[in-house]
Amino acid sequence: MTSSPAHGADDQAPLIAARDLHTWFELRQWGFLRVGAVRAVDGVEFALAPGEAVAFVGESGCGKSTLARTLLGLHRPTRGEVRFAGRSLGELQGRALKAYRAEVGYVQQDPYGALPPFLDVRRILAEPLIVHGVRDRAERERRIRAALEEVRLSPAEAFLNQFPHMLSGGQQQRVVIARALILAPRLLIADEPVSMLDASVRVEILELLRHIQRERGLTLAFITHDLSTVRHYAERIFVMYAGRVVESAPVDDLLDHPQHPYTQALLAAIADPDAANATRLREVPAGEPPSLLHPPAACRFHPRCPHFMAGLCDVEDPPDFSPRRDHRSACWLHR
């Protein structure tokens, strides 16, 4: 067993990489007294290759959305850095930062909230183009129509003049995806893109994202709390717990052979539809997810872990072990 410093593909120059990434939110009393920090992202490392689709999975409050926003440049990292195509995000200023914004598309969780309710679809899709200086109206119109067709809202004419509230949830989410794609980004970050949608629509949106990702050769970072939606829509999974990545592996390997006790607990808690479910209790680790304000020392999962080893798990941070090929897990069990 060897330990490796980063979860990630080493064979190719990464499109986006995080090194020792920390995003903390300081809590202040009366505006100046520092009383602590919410450690939303607390030491995350990974590298995503161009054209790769990965999923970040974790429960609410594990820091996955903060990670997404840090990658988008909406939060400044407290420590560490994000590198995109070889440049550190922290160095980008002014025009370079704006150019980076065109390189990264963002799909949010709540499709209705993600669209300004007072603008029609045409205008919503025109906004990023206007912001990025596409002055020619005909050019804008052409790109808007192309984007609508790409997310399979066709014929585009039927949707251009609609306001968000006139569309169904699935259609709204397609508009959000079209907006994320309209500046031709190289990286697409989708934060819980289907959790607010109905079961019958979810699959369509996931298929669409995957299809576009393959067609365009995009790097896709798909953030979700639901492991069951990951299998066909990502190649690699990062499991997050309390601000850290605890396990990462190719999808099938992780789902079929989970190594970290937290991943195992998460998988055990998820039911597939089956009448037998009603008669058996699920195994659930005791306790609640830790507070990010006062996380447990060393391994964040040790207070709930069935394999807790006193004097080790609560004393020293586990490094990333590689218990299987291409599979990393931050747990002392693999020592």
Partner: peptide, 17 residues
């Protein structure tokens, strides 16, 4: 805090906009 504002920041809209 609306998502659409966050989306606007993500595609680079200026503060004034």
């Amino acid at each position: 805090e609306a998502p659409y504002i966050e989306a606007a920041r993500a595609y680079g809209a200026s503060n004034a906009r």
